[in-house]
Design a protein around this nucleic acid. Sequence first.
DNA 1: CATCAGATAGGGTTTATTCTTAAATAGGAA
DNA 2: TTCCTATTTAAGAATAAACCCTATCTGATG
Lengths: 144, 144
Amino acid sequence: MLRKHWRAENILRDHGTKVTPQRVAILRAVGSARSHPDVDAVYRVVSRGYPNISRDTVYRTLAMMEEKKIIGSILFVGNAKRYDPVTAQHHHLVCTRCRSIFDFEEKKFDHLAPPSSSVERFKVVRTTVHVEGICYACQGLSRV
Amino acid sequence: MLRKHWRAENILRDHGTKVTPQRVAILRAVGSARSHPDVDAVYRVVSRGYPNISRDTVYRTLAMMEEKKIIGSILFVGNAKRYDPVTAQHHHLVCTRCRSIFDFEEKKFDHLAPPSSSVERFKVVRTTVHVEGICYACQGLSRV
DNA sequence: CATCAGATAGGGTTTATTCTTAAATAGGAA
DNA sequence: TTCCTATTTAAGAATAAACCCTATCTGATG
């Protein structure tokens, strides 16, 4: 968990990584972002202080921080958009290892109501449950 | 909803689109897919019957079919992976128009249990609720 | 302050997706 | 059936996200 009163340097040190100016700038950029920045948004912010920083550094650093649980990310459903013959309401099991996706149906999940405070200005169209985990085929395999 | 006893031709005609052999083949490929095929998987299947079909045709056709609700797709969270300073369990409101993402917390959603039959061979790591809809800023805008 | 494992910059590669344009064709009209 | 035209398609180029490669540099330790 990222806490504002921790200095970025300490967070990095406590996770056993080298503390470089680029990493500090990247962590601060993510930590102070209001929305969910994508890699390029982080890159643009950090570039103001480090005009020569490489995009690859931003990619590597964000991946490292996610790996070490310093930051989180929204589940990435795969590089390719996936289509589905089923248009009825259903939910998904997503294997985070091989990115296979399995459907399941659960009527109880079809109309989950988020806290009213969070959706008072948001027009809800559909609610879906994403279950992340490891599929059977991947359970026997080593974790790469 | 795609129904097996409807002929692909009729489905297309009923939705007011021209019926071409490529479209019929694409619709059949999606309709008979067991998993969630991505564009390239559909392309590979259809290529067996139409060796010269263009990838672009598959992209365009799938997008058209989704637009007309002939098929569905899994929520696409954006082209770029998005990072988040919050690592605690939380859920998301996703604006399908501008792709903004908003967090919300709801303890009740943190440990939703899918039907045991669907996860008996799946090792659950995390359960997340994705609420799709239109954010406040987009509600006043026309639908493009 | 010398060393070196690990990090960076810069550029190239891969892959998904979209665009461009000329040729082909579905479906309605004659 | 044949013709006409708006749509659709094929092919390849263009764009963009993400990742890889390598020479160079540097933070942290002794």
